[in-house]
């Protein structure tokens, strides 16, 4: 099924911004989107798949290795050519068994030929791409443990009797969920680089526009996609340009100090928050074509980079974003043009 164009999503700027930032710099480490039902969370993730630039990977390689010498030795299906393929966006279904996620013995070959062969799982497929978990707060605990382990190490290790396989598994974890269904474990929460809350727009005109576009899309997909292609293309180009820019963005000592001060003031645990803050700000600067990270970049992304890392206290979803904005004003001084 063709996804809805990313650029045609009305509003939800925070969510779109967060996704674009991870597309620019995958090392930011994923996005968690929490919000009401029917606000377009999964639509946005699936739309992102259509927007992402292609990657170069060895033909037939189950882990999307970029070069021939990166192909793991257990792979026997890889070709010898490097081809373009779409950035993988892999769905992790809730009911997925552990075998399906990590990969397991290839039962067919075991039974018919008596061969020990590895059948790669979803983590292999998601390498160098995105792994999407809808209703992430309902994921079974043992799968969460497994994801945390792999996300931390960037490598999937399958050590079962008879099989000893390892392969790279670096992916951007995208989760979405409804806070009413339950809390996320703090460890998993911390693995997501950015977190955004989405809410449904409440004004009638915006809502009408949403329905209008959706309606046009359902009625004639081809025409709708054609109409939005220029926007999609320019968005894709902007991401590619920003990627090129990224290395050239300068990080001054002042910026580092700002990041540190913010994190200390917020009392966020660990250094991951600081690092994410910096990376996201750099990606934002690159996206805007700036040559150095400024305070306005930090301001724009501070809430999404930090709100889920505040020390777990009961205030933290009631107004964590607001708290961060208040702190930003305290640390950086009030914004000159408050209208912005």
């Amino acid at each position: 099924m063709t996804p809805f164009p990313f650029t045609a999503i009305v509003g939800q700027d925070q969510m779109k911004q967060a996704m674009i930032l991870t597309a620019i710099d995958p090392s930011i480490g994923g996005v968690l989107v929490m919000g009401d039902r029917g606000t377009g969370k999964s639509t946005a993730v699936r739309a992102l798949a259509g927007l992402l630039p292609k990657i170069r990977a060895v033909e037939g390689c189950p882990v999307n290795s970029p070069r021939l010498r990166d192909v793991p030795e257990w792979v026997d299906t890889a070709g010898t050519r490097v081809v373009q393929r779409a950035t993988p966006v892999i769905d992790l279904p809730l009911g997925a068994a552990e075998d399906r996620v990590t990969g397991a013995l290839d039962i067919e070959r075991a039974l018919t030929k008596g061969e020990k062969a590895f059948q790669p799982g979803l983590l292999a497929q998601a390498n160098r791409g995105y792994l999407y978990v809808d209703e992430v707060n309902l994921l079974e605990d043992h799968i969460v443990d497994l994801l945390l382990d792999v996300a931390q190490s960037g490598e999937n290790v399958v050590e079962r009797e008879g099989l000893s396989i390892r392969h790279p598994a670096r992916f951007v974890l995208v989760g979405s969920g409804n806070p009413e269904e339950g809390e996320l474990r703090p460890q998993l929460l911390d693995r997501f680089g950015l977190m955004v809350d989405v809410a449904s727009p409440t004004d009638v005109e915006t809502r009408i526009e949403v329905i209008r576009r959706r309606d046009a899309f359902e009625a004639n997909r081809a025409a709708f996609l054609r109409r939005w292609k220029p926007f999609e293309d320019s968005q894709r180009r902007a991401i590619l340009d920003a990627r090129k820019h990224l290395a050239g963005v300068e990080t001054t000592d002042d910026t580092l100090r700002d990041c540190a001060e913010l994190c200390i003031a917020l009392g966020s645990d660990g250094l991951r928050g600081e690092l994410t803050l910096l990376k996201a700000a750099r990606a934002q600067a690159a996206y805007e074509g700036a040559t150095r990270i400024g305070r306005d970049h930090l301001r724009q992304i501070a809430a999404m980079a930090l709100q889920h890392r505040l020390r777990r206290d009961p205030m933290d979803d009631a107004g964590s974003a607001i708290r961060i904005h208040r702190l930003l004003d305290e640390v950086f001084g009030p914004l000159a043009d408050a209208a912005e």
Binding site: D36, R37, G38, S200, I208, I211, D215, E218
Partner: peptide
């Protein structure tokens, strides 16, 4: 064909009923 005024009225009605999700008005149109 769903005429625009009718569609807009459906969306407005869903807002008036305090429906947050977009699936409501989409289902109504369909």
């Amino acid at each position: 064909i769903l005429p625009d005024p009718v569609r807009d009225a459906i969306v407005a009605a869903s807002v008036g009923l305090g429906i947050v999700s977009f699936r409501g008005p989409l289902a109504a149109c369909c």
